[in-house]
């Protein structure tokens, strides 16, 4: 059966490149090595396979706290790499970080899903 839901396109736009760079770079989150997961294949990698996701606990409170912490760090690194702004000026910074945190909290989400929520909330230079 055909999948009717349109999928966010993983491509070399600012949102995808920034997501990949912040996750991969040694001086940022360092969640994987580019030799193991090149940009072209990164979109399907599940977040539970990244280094931040715990395997020794299923405690949802701990995972919720962890996801908010890493989402804040993710946005901190994003603003270092790109001159970015909000997609929707009415949205608060806290709401944007929380939206990104919800993706980080779900190990079944992929790097493509993370780039999609980043693109939906953050305006990059190539979108001006």
């Amino acid at each position: 059966m055909a999948n009717t839901k349109s999928q966010y396109e993983w491509k070399e736009n600012n949102a995808c490149v920034a997501t990949y760079k912040v996750l991969e770079a040694d001086n940022f989150l360092d969640q994987f090595e580019d030799a193991d997961i090149p940009f072209a294949k990164a979109h399907s990698v599940k977040l539970k396979n990244l280094r931040y996701f715990p395997q020794t606990t299923t405690n949802p409170q701990i995972i919720e706290v962890l996801s908010l912490e890493i989402a804040r760090k993710f946005v901190t690194h994003l603003v270092k790499v790109f001159t970015i702004s909000k997609q929707n000026s009415a949205a608060t910074s806290a709401a944007i970080i929380t939206s990104i945190a919800k993706v980080f909290a779900d190990g079944e989400k992929t790097i493509r899903d993370l780039a999609e929520i980043v693109d939906a909330n953050i305006k990059f230079p190539d979108e001006n």
Partner: peptide
């Protein structure tokens, strides 16, 4: 502005 240091 997008502020990564925002209180949540």
């Amino acid at each position: 502005e997008l502020d990564p240091n925002a209180i949540i």
